[in-house]
């Protein structure tokens, strides 16, 4: 039971990683692409490492997996913010949606 559930969670995570990759290609500008990268960093990494931890059961390996996950989740927003802030200060302007400014739908 445990291994199969773990496997399924790992595969689900890898699907989210691919979705993040697709978003990285499809989204129109740098600032929107950051959100696609966020999907990979949070849910992709979270599901893959949690799934592996379920497979490993209660052991030192699980602790290591969760420490890697903790590290990724601590550093990824820092790196993303540093990147976005640098881009903004370098003069990169986010493409904004003008039509949605008016109250609608």
């Amino acid at each position: 039971m445990g291994p199969i559930v773990g496997d399924l969670i790992v595969v689900a995570g890898s699907i989210f990683i691919v979705i993040g990759g697709i978003g990285l290609i499809r989204f129109p500008d740098f600032f929107t692409r950051m959100h696609a990268g966020g999907v990979t960093d949070t849910f992709g990494a979270g599901l893959v490492l949690t799934g592996l931890a379920i497979q490993a059961g209660m052991s030192l390996i699980t602790v290591k997996l969760l420490l890697i996950l903790l590290f990724l989740w601590l550093t990824s927003p820092t790196a993303t913010h540093a990147l976005a802030n640098s881009a903004l200060e370098a003069g990169l302007k986010p493409k904004l949606d003008r039509q949605e400014e008016a109250p609608s739908s």
Partner: peptide, 28 residues
């Protein structure tokens, strides 16, 4: 995405995503 750019920040973003995926790939 790293190849297509167009800005240097797109490339760094792609690099960062690539690195995260490497970590997960090694684990799997």
């Amino acid at each position: 995405r790293a190849w297509a750019g167009p800005t240097v920040f797109d490339r760094i973003l792609a690099l960062n995503a690539f690195g995260t995926k490497t970590v997960l790939l090694i684990a799997v």
